[in-house]
């Protein structure tokens, strides 16, 4: 599809015009992103506090993380943010085909991220590194009795992040579907913008999660 459908977007009746709706929607999305930052941030705060209380135990846990997988995943997500931004860029320019490629690439990157995560998790399960009380201290030869706390944090933080990756991917699939249907044009692409901002948040959280879990420990 090389041409963009130029039908006018019908904006809701309580707005003055389509642009009014667009800026309002954007503000709504930013407000929602603040809640995401605060929610993940709470986990970070808890992690910092316990890291300070049990530094050696956290170091022991962090040794189990493979920095190469974390590093690769960081590059994957950064690249996916780039393609997401490009997806919006090309819709704004009216280049539907390039937009399609970039949105698809973003979804693919998300999938790669999840696959790497799957390997990380299964490897840990294989070695017995379960969260909380399910971690058998004797089996893994842990030096610290509460090593399960570290892995509780690890699985909760990466798991919650992973859920957001999957949600983001689903949203991008939906937006891609609508794009292929011709719903968007340079004057109306609000859902893509919104999903894009959500996806960047997913990247943002990982930008902090990566050093926190893989490096600082």
């Amino acid at each position: 599809m090389s041409t963009v459908n130029s039908h006018e977007h019908h904006y809701a009746h309580h707005f003055k015009n389509a642009d009014h709706e667009f800026v309002t929607s954007k503000q709504g999305i930013w407000l929602f992103m603040v809640t995401e930052i605060l929610m993940f941030g709470g986990l970070f705060v808890a992690f910092f506090i316990y890291h300070a209380m049990y530094p050696e135990m956290f170091a022991e846990g962090a040794k189990q993380l493979d920095w190469r997988m974390g590093f690769t995943n960081t590059l994957v997500l950064i690249f996916s943010s780039f393609t997401m931004a490009l997806g919006i860029h090309y819709i704004q320019k009216g280049d539907a085909r390039k937009a399609t490629w970039n949105l698809s690439a973003t979804i693919l990157c998300g999938a790669i991220f999840m696959v790497i995560k799957y390997f990380e998790y299964t490897h840990k399960f294989h070695l017995g590194f379960f969260p909380g009380k399910y971690l058998d201290v004797a089996r893994v030869g842990a030096e610290h009795a509460n090593l399960g706390l570290y892995f509780g944090f690890y699985y909760c933080m990466t798991g919650l992040h992973g859920i957001h990756v999957l949600t983001g991917m689903s949203l991008i699939v939906w937006v891609l579907f609508r794009h292929l249907r011709g719903d968007f044009n340079p004057h109306y692409y609000t859902p893509v913008e919104g999903v894009g901002i959500f996806w960047h948040i997913v990247d943002l959280v990982w930008i902090f999660l990566f050093p926190l879990l893989y490096l600082v420990g």
Binding site: P131, N146, G148, L149, F153, C156
Partner: peptide
């Protein structure tokens, strides 16, 4: 999961 974040018996606060 019994992670021990709030349970004092597991080192939590």
């Amino acid at each position: 999961l019994g992670v021990g974040i709030f349970d004092p018996a597991l080192g939590g606060d």
